[in-house]
Nucleic acid binder design. Structure first.
Lengths: 344, 344
DNA sequence: CTGTTAGCGCCTTCAG
DNA sequence: CTGAAGGCGCTAACAG
């Protein structure tokens, strides 16, 4: 007789097996579609299981098999189009392989990143995807993941010191191209706005900027390089100051979306016409960039693909139970959108 | 003698207890800071535990205590500023209470939503936060959560049929205000763009639109109401068609960010001047809206607070082990930003 | 093909 | 204050 009130007696292998006069093991095997169980019993078992809406207890299974079917994603923030899109790609890849996704935000805080990683060593995840916090200087907590047998894949903001797989974009080339784009458009004094830290991506982009300048016989000027801070209003103030101090600036290359937007705003405010007086190009995944008038030229990273690629690499390692990944680097290409005023 | 190679022998209560010549129970109690264990042993235990970087196995604990310290978040998409900000608030609240956050994207697909919810009944989460998919018409899968003893809190896109806590914004009022804003600005023919479905929020906003019209002696015209679809390019085509069919439209109220942006784009394309020919106001959490020239007026939802509030309510219920929440409705207020061209 | 047994790592009575 | 024992739900080895 069926028990249709699972809230009363729990629905688990035990209760199922009792009602079916089978052993727990057989029921378990039947549900996992093992070949060593007769088709007839499989049918019986499945029928009851679905009638009672049986759902296996994920944690019991995880404990037993030492596999959680879960990956962790540790990123600075999600209120940022790039990471939002990346998560999308990650979730997609994870779902396709039957994995769950735990999300953690560091808010670019080292302490927080450390405590998250420490927690995760408890076996809650089979693997980790990570974009390091800008405040992170010490990487011991990341190294220790190796001991805990948890593979990690870095994306976008990678950590060069750790030997593992990394997914990035062609940051150096993008920095170079962006700068050259401004030079071609006639800019003679180009500022570079980046985030103040040791992030690999910032360094690569900056090197691209420097090399593009020298290649075009423009002497790099440290005074034109601005390191942003966490607080956005402060950044606006810094940019305003820079533009007032150097009225000769006629081109701005922003390595971060927020700085590009802020620069745009400050130009408006200071009545510097875009693009007549100042041309701006910035890293951005903001769709609305194309709608600005004049539109903002952007370097757009394939965020979704980055997330997806990273997740796929991680999952492949997880399935093979390889704690340490080969130091493989996947580089995807960003796209430069040179947008012109529609002249309406 | 210390074993500093946890990769060799596993670090768990058993191994710790052996090295300390204590029982597993005592070690467990010491680590949970139980009052029934001497301070001296606590110190000894903690010392070894931290030396070996002991991290409790979350799944064993979950299995035993039937508590996962994890909540699930099921949303349509994350590549949308509103949801990104909401996740931020959710993660914050969860973290403060020591909870983990699993994320699932439905892509507005009913089947997917159902399968996710079904999975989650396996005890993987202690509670659920949800914004229902636009394709969802049947709510049996949500009801069944009650049987599984999993509390659920809806936010933004709520499901009226389920009796549980809900966190929303004042959608009716916002729709009313937005429409009145356009009327005050002199619009005589106001279109309403919304998403094609049974979403509660769409209905409320639409009712506000209708009531504002009648209150101002404008007869609602069904021809001016457009239901969007999933594909954005199709939406652009639909909007274009609408504006061509009804050249008398001089005001647009968009209930979704994407539609507002698309409307903006189509107006540009059709050379309808904003705001001289057509005024636009739309729901949006896009910062860049203020940068558009002319800027886009928006109704902005307190996304972060919505996520945070919803998570707090859920966590309170989870801690009390209440599967069914009181049908409590928290309504937060959106802000209308009436932006004017800077006239530069 | 099916059943029995023995844990995964942890927590929680119940006894000392 | 500490220890011994049982079991959360599931799976995997070993018997039949």
């Amino acid at each position: 007789m069926l028990n249709l009130f699972p809230a009363m007696t729990p629905v688990n292998l035990k209760s199922l097996s009792e009602q079916l006069n089978l052993s727990i093991a057989t029921v378990s095997r039947a549900l996992r579609d093992s070949h060593e169980v007769s088709e007839a019993t499989k049918v019986r078992v499945r029928a009851l299981a679905s009638a009672l809406h049986y759902e296996p207890n994920a944690y019991a299974s995880s404990l037993r098999r030492n596999i959680s079917k879960t990956i962790g994603v540790v990123i600075p923030k999600v209120a940022n189009h790039f990471f939002a899109l990346a998560i999308n790609g990650i979730e997609e890849a994870a779902r396709q392989s039957g994995y769950h996704v735990l999300i953690y935000l560091t808010h670019d805080d080292y302490e927080r990143e450390m405590s998250i990683v420490q927690h995760l060593k408890g076996g809650r995840v089979d693997g980790l995807l990570m974009s390091v916090a800008s405040g992170t200087q010490d990487f011991a907590h990341l190294r220790s993941l190796k001991d805990a047998n948890i593979p990690i894949v870095f994306f976008d903001r990678v950590c060069a010191e750790i030997e593992t797989a990394k997914v990035t974009t062609n940051d150096y080339e993008s920095g170079y191209q962006a700068t050259e784009h401004l030079i071609q458009a006639g800019c003679r004094t180009i500022a570079h706005l980046l985030i103040s830290n040791n992030l690999s991506i910032g360094q690569f982009r900056h090197q691209g900027y420097l090399d593009a300048l020298t290649a075009n016989d423009q002497a790099p000027d440290p005074d034109l390089v601005m390191s942003g801070v966490m607080d956005n209003e402060q950044n606006v103030a810094l940019i305003r100051e820079l533009l007032l101090r150097r009225p000769d600036i006629d081109g701005i290359f922003a390595s971060v979306e927020r700085l590009a937007i802020s620069a745009y705003r400050v130009c408006h405010e200071l009545q510097r016409r875009i693009p007549e007086d100042v041309k701006i190009i910035g890293f951005s995944n903001l769709e609305a960039a194309a709608l600005l008038d004049p539109p903002l030229s952007t370097i757009t990273q394939p965020a979704y693909d980055i997330g997806r690629e990273a997740a796929k690499i991680l999952l492949r390692a997880v399935e093979k139970k390889k704690a340490v990944l080969s130091t493989q680097s996947v580089v995807l290409e960003s796209t430069l959108f040179a947008r012109q005023s529609t002249g309406s």
